[in-house]
């Protein structure tokens, strides 16, 4: 049987779900960044598959943009995590509750 759009969508939803669970359960900031990447890539898959469905390259353009944006976000994220580590000697997210006045 041929791989149809539905299969691809299920695949991207699956990856998105995994990414979301990782995002919600992990305590370590870095692993959260990783799961974030996973979620972004799941959307990429969906985009590319839609582009294949419609035969035009709209999805691919957005895909490229998403990759660059993901890179930027990760860069800024790592910088902030580095700074957090310098200040608190650990990057556990659930301890970062300084602002809960």
């Amino acid at each position: 049987m041929t791989i149809g759009i539905a299969h691809l969508l299920f695949l991207s939803f699956g990856i998105f779900a995994i990414g979301l669970c990782g995002f919600l359960t992990r305590r370590n900031a870095l692993s959260i960044l990783l799961s974030l990447e996973l979620m972004l890539n799941s959307v990429n898959i969906a985009l590319v598959s839609f582009s294949k469905l419609h035969g035009n390259e709209g999805g691919h353009i957005i895909y490229f943009l998403v990759i660059t944006v993901a890179a930027c976000e990760t860069a800024v994220g790592l910088a902030i995590i580095l700074n957090l580590f310098r200040l608190k000697k650990n990057i556990r997210v659930d301890e970062a509750t300084e602002l809960r006045v």
Partner: peptide, 14 residues
């Protein structure tokens, strides 16, 4: 992104 993807998916253009 999901919103955009679905919109693109449904209509085929951006």
């Amino acid at each position: 992104l999901w919103g955009i993807a679905m919109l693109y998916g449904a209509t085929g253009s951006t």
